[in-house]
């Protein structure tokens, strides 16, 4: 330890550098190179139909994104999703963790129950909730609402509320997971602080606001950032619950990328194959289906 500390910071021994190389090579090959390549191609007219006739087009592709309503919808939905899910998940996970940090008999059981949804793939969650949300007479939630005398809510079929219905399932799924992270952080807080505060006459709310919250900062940072990141790239739950519908009402940035990129690419790959077979250079969009 001492020897390392005595060295100048920032100098890398050749032996250590060598050990870093394999990981660095993989990282550059599978992340840096494709990312930089994608960035470069975003300023060109590259298309999968004409992959060899590439010329520079400046900002054209970027401008076209904002001209199409569907992309604007996608960006708006993604931001809505990321912000609301980040706020709700954290706002619910912290009090839940604080409550389940207290000593009572069913504590362990309740912790498992709240954590459980995080175990399932969002695809399964989507399948499950699409039944719960259903407007059919067999839809559980709407049945409950009907029993309460409230009318049917078309959770996934009403384009004004579908995105919020999607967010709700993800809040339900991920509150427990984030609660566990908050719990771990809570357990690292020295109980003596609370004792001291109590002696000084602080109530439970004051303790929570003045001790718990500030000392939870590391977990808050972690949870906020991770939930926000996964929110900005949300795709799986949208795909399984609504496929971006009804219409394009719940499309997100990634769901559009998948649709515009992959799905068409697959088609065009087939197309390109045909071109290669024909070798006559003409553009034939024909193929028997």
């Amino acid at each position: 330890m001492l020897r390392i500390r005595s060295r100048r910071p920032g100098r890398l021994e050749p032996a250590y550098a060598l050990l870093l190389l394999p990981a660095l090579a993989v990282y550059v090959l599978f992340f840096v190179y494709p990312a930089a390549g994608t960035f470069y191609y975003s300023f060109t007219n590259w298309s999968d139909v004409h992959p060899n006739q590439v010329s520079f087009v400046g900002w054209r592709n970027y401008r076209s994104i904002f001209r199409e309503d569907i992309y604007v919808t996608g960006i708006r939905n993604t931001l809505t999703y990321a912000v609301i899910s980040t706020i709700l998940i954290n706002a619910l996970a912290i009090p839940l963790a604080a409550a389940l940090n207290r000593g009572f008999r069913t504590r362990a059981l309740l912790r498992s129950v709240f954590f459980m949804p995080a175990v399932f793939s969002p695809l399964i969650i989507g399948f499950l909730w699409s039944y719960l949300y259903s407007t059919s007479d067999f839809g559980l939630i709407n049945r409950g609402l009907a029993a309460l005398g409230i009318g049917k809510i078309n959770f996934l079929g009403d384009s004004d509320i579908a995105i919020y219905a999607v967010i709700l399932t993800q809040v339900w799924q991920w509150v427990g997971y984030n609660m566990v992270i908050y719990l771990a952080n809570l357990q690292s807080i020295n109980p003596e602080y609370y004792e001291a505060a109590k002696l000084d006459g602080a109530g439970p709310l004051q303790s929570f606001g003045r001790i718990t919250l500030p000392l939870l900062a590391p977990a808050i940072t972690f949870c906020t950032v991770t939930v926000m990141i996964s929110g900005l790239k949300v795709f799986d739950i949208v795909y399984s619950l609504t496929s971006g519908g009804p219409g394009h009402a719940t499309e997100t940035i990634v769901s559009l990328m998948v649709k515009k990129g992959t799905r068409r690419r697959l088609l065009c790959l087939r197309l390109r194959l045909r071109h290669r077979i024909r070798r006559d250079g003409r553009h034939h969009h024909v193929f028997a289906a």
Partner: peptide
């Protein structure tokens, strides 16, 4: 519809949904 088949099937379906929902 040739190469338009799949993307247009998808878009047409989504647009019919939008007609049902009253957005289009």
């Amino acid at each position: 519809w040739g190469a338009l088949r799949n993307p247009i099937i998808d878009e047409l379906g989504k647009m019919i949904q939008a007609v049902v929902g009253g957005q289009e």
